[in-house]
Write a protein that binds this DNA or RNA. Structure first.
Lengths: 113, 113
DNA sequence: AGAACGAGCAACCAATTAGTTGCGCATCGC
DNA sequence: GCGATGCGCAACTAATTGGTTGCTCGTTCT
């Protein structure tokens, strides 16, 4: 239960937005949603870019706190750590606060899953 | 009620993420939350950057669909149009779907406002 | 009518970024 | 022990981006 100031929350949200701004990074996250864990090389096999490029993207995601790495033997496995998504969603909820009708639609949409 | 394909939704969400990745742009959005409408010049007075820079940021936000411009006489007023936030939040909800406990916390948080 | 204000180009600059290749190091399988 | 596999680091490149200044055009005010 980390206590975040407004500025800190903005920063955290900004990091998440920056991380998810890149389409390749979003693809990585999507891949990481159904595969519970993944390595950079395995991921690179599915994507049209090099392993190092994937590694950089994973590092960027890790910077935003969306992904955590754990080394196992000679390979490092990445898993999703979606906690920071909460900060990003909270930020957007704040931005949308004046539009209450729309906000309730969002809640509906969330309820769908 | 626009029907969006997965790819379209990803694209829309990506545009939102890219737009909100910039701290200045987030500041613009925040300013636009309590002021119901704003001009580029007025905004530039509060920010440490030039009017043209602000105009570019507003254009970027408009590209993402987060802001709409309407010209009135010699000034153009911008207002928030938070609809695309829904796509972004839906994307994130999808990414966090496996973490049901966390998802419910998000819903709680949304309920707060 | 004329000054002043607000906006919209366009060109340019510096920094960031997404990608590459090349290399060295550790770990696993035989 | 040795080759193959997987990672990490570094250097470099091309494209994008956030910012600037300078100019022009339309609108408002007196």
């Amino acid at each position: 239960m980390t206590r975040l100031s407004d500025a800190e929350r903005d920063l955290a949200a900004g990091a998440v937005f920056a991380a998810l701004a890149d389409p390749t990074r979003r693809a990585v996250v999507r891949a990481l949603v159904d595969r519970p864990t993944v390595t950079a090389s395995a991921l690179a096999a599915d994507l049209p870019i090099s392993r190092q490029a994937v590694a950089k993207h994973l590092a960027a995601l890790a910077d935003a706190g969306l992904v955590a790495a754990s080394r196992e033997g000679r390979e490092t496995r990445y898993r999703l750590t979606p906690a920071p998504l909460g900060d990003a969603m909270a930020w957007m909820a704040g931005a949308g606060a004046r539009w209450d009708d729309r906000l309730s639609r969002l809640q509906e949409r969330l309820g769908e899953r």
